[in-house]
Structure formats: structure tokens, C-alpha cells
Amino acid sequence: MVTALAHLGIFSGDLPKVLVSDELNLNGLHIIENGFISAVGKGTFSAYGFPPMPFAVAKAGLIAYARMLARVFASDPRGLIFAAVCPGYVRTDMTGPYAPLTPDQGAETPVYVALANDKRLRRHNGGLWKQMRPLKW
């Protein structure tokens, strides 16, 4: 299952292709971020392919960043692993009492990724994780 925040279909134009491109670098991510901020200020975010959800744009940026870092450090001898993690809709002071997950349940995936089998994480280095499983992004 892919949540709305993880689904590239909420973006339009070339933006989904750019976010998953192997050519995307830190400068490209900054351009996307600054473009979103500017477009929101002008009320033109949809014309540039952005959804009207700042949190979703921020989450997409973090996922793209994890993918980019995994690619950049792929040959690093330290064997660094990068992951973006979605804890789910967790009950907090901000989300209120109606979110379906407790904080303990929301912490399961980040803890799993932090402690998971090294081989499984390497196969999905730079990936998005939810409910202790990698998601296609």
C-alpha cells in the first residue's frame, strides 16, 4: 500500500520523474524546494506540478534525499545505509486522539529499520519504509 504522502501521483508534469531521477543532486533538490516555496507565495504551486500539501512536498523531498544519498555513497567503504521512514498516522498532540496508531506502534518501523538485517536494508538502500516493509516510490 502506498500512502498519499508517498505517492508520486500527487505531483504533476515532470516533477515525479525529476524526484526519482538518478541525476538528481543536492542542488537540484534545493531548486525544487525553493521553487515550491516561491510558487506557494505566488499561489502558482499547481502550475509547477506541486500538490497543495506542504507536508507531502517536504516528505517527497526527504525520500528523494535518502535515495540521492544512497546513490552518492554507494561505493563508500563504510557501507552506509539510508532510508526514509513513514511511521503512519500516529496519535500525538498535533494529530489528536483519532489517529489509528499509538506512538509505540508508530515507532515500530523506525526501530525496525535501525535494527534490521543488514542484507535486507542494502537491497532497499535509499528506500521508503512503512509498516516494516519497503515501499515502491
Score class of each variant (00 low, 15 high):
74 A>V: 15
76 D>S: 11
38 S>R: 11
54 P>W: 04
44 T>H: 08
128 L>Y: 15
63 I>M: 15
97 P>D: 12
57 V>K: 08
43 G>F: 05
2 V>M: 12
131 Q>V: 00
72 V>K: 14
33 E>V: 11
126 G>R: 00
122 R>I: 05
11 F>S: 12
104 D>H: 11
74 A>T: 09
19 L>Q: 08
132 M>G: 00
101 L>D: 09
66 A>K: 01
113 V>W: 06
20 V>A: 15
107 A>C: 08
67 R>L: 10
87 P>G: 11
116 A>C: 11
21 S>C: 12
88 G>K: 00
96 G>M: 03
36 F>S: 02
42 K>A: 15
75 S>N: 12
114 A>R: 01
101 L>Q: 14
122 R>G: 06
16 P>R: 10
125 N>W: 06
103 P>H: 01
17 K>N: 14
115 L>Q: 05
101 L>M: 12
47 A>W: 01
14 D>A: 15
59 K>N: 12
130 K>H: 12
41 G>W: 00
40 V>I: 14
4 A>N: 11
40 V>A: 14
108 E>Q: 11
17 K>T: 13
136 K>N: 10
123 R>W: 09
86 C>L: 08
81 I>K: 04
62 L>H: 04
18 V>D: 08
39 A>Y: 03
72 V>G: 02
6 A>L: 11
13 G>C: 14
137 W>V: 12
58 A>K: 02
19 L>H: 12
44 T>V: 12
78 R>F: 02
120 R>K: 09
22 D>N: 13
119 K>E: 13
82 F>C: 05
98 Y>M: 08
79 G>N: 05
107 A>Q: 01
56 A>H: 09
69 L>Q: 10
98 Y>I: 02
99 A>C: 09
64 A>R: 02
117 N>L: 01
37 I>S: 14
32 I>C: 12
26 L>I: 13
50 F>S: 06
92 T>K: 07
75 S>A: 15
127 G>Q: 01
131 Q>M: 02
18 V>P: 10
108 E>N: 02
68 M>C: 04
48 Y>I: 00
94 M>V: 04
90 V>C: 04
131 Q>E: 09
106 G>Q: 05
136 K>H: 12
37 I>H: 14
59 K>R: 08
40 V>G: 07
115 L>K: 04
131 Q>R: 06
94 M>S: 00
110 P>Y: 01
11 F>I: 08
92 T>G: 10
38 S>V: 04
94 M>L: 11
28 G>P: 07
43 G>K: 01
100 P>S: 07
87 P>K: 06
62 L>C: 11
30 H>P: 00
92 T>I: 08
21 S>E: 03
112 Y>H: 06
43 G>W: 05
82 F>P: 06
110 P>T: 00
45 F>A: 15
98 Y>G: 04
130 K>W: 09
83 A>Y: 00
42 K>N: 11
110 P>S: 08
120 R>Y: 13
26 L>D: 12
116 A>K: 03
29 L>S: 09
74 A>M: 15
28 G>E: 05
3 T>L: 15
14 D>M: 12
134 P>Y: 05
134 P>F: 06
68 M>N: 00
52 P>Q: 08
40 V>R: 13
4 A>K: 10
109 T>N: 05
132 M>T: 14
75 S>P: 05
55 F>S: 14
21 S>F: 07
99 A>G: 09
32 I>S: 10
6 A>N: 10
91 R>Q: 15
6 A>R: 07
83 A>I: 00
46 S>Y: 02
117 N>K: 08
